[in-house]
Nucleic acid binder design. Structure first.
Lengths: 193, 193, 193, 193
DNA sequence: GGCTAAACGAGACGGTACGTCCTGTCTTAAA
DNA sequence: TTTAAGACAGGACGTACCGTCTCGTTTAGCC
């Protein structure tokens, strides 16, 4: 016997249309005027919804942006296909950099990172949802370095190196995400003794 | 005869007291309520100055914070004493991490990084002033790996790795800045083939 | 055989419990926080009913309050017992003032008067229902001044004087409703030449 | 030696233009959509000012309306010219009724009366400023009934009668403010035994 | 020593956004 | 068909800041 639904579905159901319009408006605004141009007020105005509807479902405008981003990135953890560290790592980086070439997504990421500095509660959600997921994906790959020579560098640190370079180029010192960087990171990480 | 100063210093001079009070108030507020709690209005209120005075000398509140930070960090580029890459790098990292153990300074840095995402003009100043300086210091060290075996990893990338890990742990995934990390980074950077 | 009811009462019938709960909640809220603290939302919340139910049966929250008030005052027009103007008038005023000594009822009345200024449609219902009734009651008394000396003051004006003083003390310049006022009004109205 | 100004005039001075625009907008809005159509937001919007400016100088939108009204009515207490009660009273009533024939002023008055029911703090200000003034003016006239026969009706009550009739016709049961009413009130008040 | 001009504190100003509350309508599932 | 529950678009609330704009005052170099 199933008794899992604790709260019976009472009242009107959440509008999928409004959700869609809100997420779309958020992405559109960030694309047009940057994250600084984003306000709950404006999302409501441009999505044709009410502010209350936004506050009902998301604690913060940053959470709206994060949901929109996750929809696009879909937490697509590319299952490591081979068992070769270098090949899997290369694939992971190429995949990550592919997203990185969409300016729209970069704007969203930068906005989320900014908000995480200003709002500790959101930072927690951001880390638990987005950051943790990416780390988990790469961890799977790095742990599988079967025949690799023992390294004095912890996997955690290797994760920090890979994601560190990516975020650094995104947030602090803009630079290309090209194939050469992929190769260099593979050398550094896979060759770490 | 020198006649280069076209506008003689006319009128009242800039008040050193006000400057001091503004910088101190900014640091105090960020320390107390985080960068999110900082506003030009509040700096003026708590420093006993007028808003106009702040706007006269700094383009944004972030520039106030940056000036306060630079006063503390003083762009202190530790001249590489030895000619040994590993030793110099270790010294540089230990020095950098030392600052990183002052929560007040971390808060300032995180605020500046956040603002850089929201204000492109400030991002430019931030990069030119603060980021460039740190990169120059490390570049000096890394270029001096005279007898080192040729590496396939560009110095630029190595810079990104080192600063990437630091900023990543500061902004995205908080973690300790301990001696072990110093050692690991030295292994990765100095051992890069 | 009677077949006059064209539309048989189809579906669920109006809930007497809900009506009761709504009227009670309205009175309780006005008593607690004044008419300004009253909202349809809050009536629904505190009465455990749905907003729709309120809107289905009453055009505005003021109508809810008016119905609750009428239930208490019951339009109890005290039949003039004697044929003596002074005696009947005294009785009418004492009766009216009695209600006036219940702060709860005064709050309801003041709320209705306020709403009547803000909502013309409700003002019409208020006048037709509540005001007209009170005027009719007093008119009956005043018209029965058979042997009284002819007065240059119209009955309508006398009504305005009596109710005017009452409402004025209620809405504009708070003052007691005491026996002395009864006597004075009787002097003025019955003695009008 | 004058030392009466306690606070030196610091900072920018209050803008007379803004004050004018705010008062005018308030009157215009009440005239157009009634007091129910008035909101601080709308006053700001239509006067081309900021909400803060309104809140800086007036505690409540009702206070804005009251100031606008006082500017029109100017507390013009017509000095009783003669020493004859009937003549002075007639003059006072005719004067009061004159205002009463401007629908714009009536709307303002009704709004203020409504607000006084909803906001106790404003009610206090309304009474102290507007109501008290009108009562004082009439008191002067009524107290001067030199040779008049002693009446059993207190002056206070007579004030309530006069203002009661006026407010009652304004708020509760609309009726004309004509010469006949003036005459009747004079008969009642001056003839009170 | 007086003149001129910039800097200063204070604070008013037109705006925008905040997060909350309420309005009146609509949708859902149960009675 | 009514009900309780609750989502929805919209609008107002009163507060906080933004960056600009007066103000009267203070402080300097120059004549």
């Amino acid at each position: 016997v199933d008794a899992s639904t604790p709260k019976a579905a009472l009242g009107r159901k959440r509008s999928a249309d409004s959700r869609r319009a809100i997420l779309d408006a958020a992405v559109r605004i960030v694309g047009a005027d940057g994250y600084a141009g984003l306000s709950t007020e404006r999302i409501a105005r441009e999505s044709g919804t009410g502010k209350q509807t936004i506050y009902r479902w998301w604690p913060t405008k940053a959470d709206v942006v994060m949901e929109a981003l996750l929809e696009k990135v879909e937490l697509k953890v590319p299952e490591p296909k081979t068992r070769d560290l270098r090949l899997d790592l290369t694939a992971f980086l190429q995949d990550s950099f592919a997203l990185g070439r969409s300016p729209k997504i970069l704007d969203l990421l930068r906005g989320l990172a900014a908000e995480a500095q200003l709002d500790a509660a959101f930072a927690e959600r951001f880390r638990a949802t987005f950051v943790a997921n990416r780390r988990a994906a790469l961890t799977t790959i790095l742990e599988r370095r079967a025949g690799a020579p023992a390294s004095s560098v912890r996997i955690t640190t290797l994760l920090d190196v890979v994601f560190g370079v990516i975020w650094y180029r995104l947030l602090i010192a803009p630079a290309e995400f090209d194939q050469e960087l992929v190769d260099e990171l593979v050398v550094l990480v896979a060759g770490a003794r």
